[in-house]
Amino acid sequence: MEKVWIIAKRELNSFFDSLVAYLILVAFLGFTGFFTWLQGSDVFFRKQADLLAFFETAKWTLFFFIPALTMRMLAEEKKTGTIELLLTKDVSDREVVLGKYLGCLLLVIIALLFTIPYYVTVSRLGNMDHGATISGYLGLVLLSSAYIGIGLFASSVTNNQIVAFILALIIGICFQFIFDMLSGGTTGFIGELLNTLSINTHFDSIKRGVLDSKDLIYFFSISAIGIFFAELAIKNR
């Protein structure tokens, strides 16, 4: 576990060293701030003291930003050959993938922590459901975890960052739209299955404050499967 932490710290530092982290933080706060406070179905338009507008915007922002963060994590190491140096150190393949997963998740959590002022502000505006809001934040972390799993897998199967980015987006779109759309047109077991696979089914209930173990298992499974296949892909060398 200690090795995972060492790798995660390096990944996090490298985001900040390469300015990627600052760019992502500024863009994330910019987008979510704009759509939470100023435009569209923002807080003032809805006249509700909740952060649903923020959660919905954050979901889409993370949908695009996380593949941008994960795309280089394994693909670049494979391309430059640094993965060889890393894997001949006293670490296992799994520790490398988990370290990278954790490093990326930490950056997302830092970005989410910067939105705490939103939470404080809205809670002053009206009678806020604190439980539902915390549940919404948890939902965003779980959602990010799933996207990072998918992104790491996409990054592990290629040594081209652009391919990794697009592949992660395509898989993301499947979970975000395609399964949802297909489930509308099918009935029975397959319809049920497609509905279960869709991210929105699970995220929507969490962001309203309904914490169900089924949803937790869903997000953990996607993360774990992504990490597992990423590990498998780098094992195959």
């Binding site: 390469s18 430059t80 140096l85 006293d90």
Partner: peptide
Amino acid sequence: PEHNPLYQEMPVYDYLAYCAAL
């Protein structure tokens, strides 16, 4: 390794400390 792959964006000192920790 053959082509001596290293993390380009990392300072020498930090890189060696990272390798030592690993």
